[in-house]
Design a protein around this nucleic acid. Sequence first.
DNA 1: ACATAATAGTTATGTCGGATATCTATTTTT
DNA 2: AAAAATAGATATCCGACATAACTATTATGT
Lengths: 158, 158
Amino acid sequence: MSEQDQGLRLFCGYNIKRAFNVIQADVSQTLVPFGLRLVTWSALSVIHGNPGLRQSQLADILSIERPNLVVLLDELERADLINRDRDSADRRAYRLSLTEAGEVLYHEALLAMEAHEDRMTEGLTREDRAALIAMLRRIEANGKTGGETDGNGSLPEA
Amino acid sequence: MSEQDQGLRLFCGYNIKRAFNVIQADVSQTLVPFGLRLVTWSALSVIHGNPGLRQSQLADILSIERPNLVVLLDELERADLINRDRDSADRRAYRLSLTEAGEVLYHEALLAMEAHEDRMTEGLTREDRAALIAMLRRIEANGKTGGETDGNGSLPEA
DNA sequence: ACATAATAGTTATGTCGGATATCTATTTTT
DNA sequence: AAAAATAGATATCCGACATAACTATTATGT
């Protein structure tokens, strides 16, 4: 009894979707003990790496809409994980940073996420993972350049 | 100005999500002329490859819940793309198949989807694509075996 | 055979991620 | 100073996906 979705398995999109579904399920479980979701953890990670950035910058980096980011940050602020400090030079804007508790939680969650990553990529070598990520990024880039027929884009050699 | 999501780019899940987002956007556009969505096209593909299957089987193959499949099939039936024939041996069940119009539309959409796939994977060799899909399937399998510590699962060699 | 359980499909409903329109406050432009 | 742009917030909607419960039919167990 061979596969019943043979026709679909030829498409990257179908496989990507299915792989993401299982990752999403596992990552949700992984983050439950920390009271985080994938998107809130992503926000913590970016704020950790770019303290002082603005909400709109964060929204751009994560490719989420500003209105949705607001409620997400409300959630993180209520949990005392981030600071929203008014920018003294531009009083419309907030500067985002992690609180002490936010830093601690971020690092704890990072360990759990690394274990999660190892679970998900079991059977793949370190080089496999690098190649996988490079190809996914290439696909992401292909999608964003709505079809300029970039004749020779290529991947960094594994 | 290096990347502002460095910490996240190390995770397959983050890259998979972002790659899927651009694929999803492109595939939606690709299927608009056919009045299809990714999930309805997937259903056509599986029915095409397995004529006579039941709704619950289709739901299993596509990993979608039965209630959601019902409305999806209603949509395809209303567009006269599929037949729902009562199984004479089990009058609870329907046997699914494509109509003539469904076959025609499926093949037309297939061509468009293959062009879409080429757009998305521009810059990847045929071997890259095969390796990518193999790794994604490995991840999918890792997720489904909720952690049995399969000591030596490996990938088919590229 | 008949009561019980199981199954196929359906209906109704809830949840969650993501998108748009519009608003206020502030800053920039002219 | 007036008009336009920007940062963030509020309200609202849409689509993907999940669960519970219902009807009709078939399978099971004594």
